[in-house]
């Protein structure tokens, strides 16, 4: 069983979705960080996007 503690002491590798400043701050500290090119999904309708995701498996 995986435990929360498994992350403690491990190198943090961060995916940032949203405000780019957070990603830039991490890179400034030499933390591995990648910014996702995120935009609102499927015409801005999150329910439709979920439905689409479910249909696509």
């Amino acid at each position: 069983m995986k435990r929360v503690n498994d992350i403690f002491g491990k190198e943090l590798k961060v995916l940032n979705i949203g405000l780019e400043q957070f990603c830039e701050d991490l890179k400034d500290q030499n933390v591995t960080a990648v910014q996702m090119d995120w935009r609102p999904p499927a015409g801005g309708d999150s329910e439709a996007a979920d439905l689409l995701a479910a249909l696509l498996g």
Binding site: V14, L15, F22, Q35, M36, W38, P40, S46, A53
Partner: peptide
């Protein structure tokens, strides 16, 4: 800048943490 989780994980294997600050109505999904 990857456009999906799959491509992010291919680009940086072992991603173990995610910070999410998108507008609230899209946040649960991400």
């Amino acid at each position: 800048k990857p456009k999906s989780f799959d491509s992010a994980l291919k680009a940086v294997p072992g991603l173990n943490f995610c910070i999410i600050s998108v507008p609230g109505k899209y946040a649960r999904r991400e």
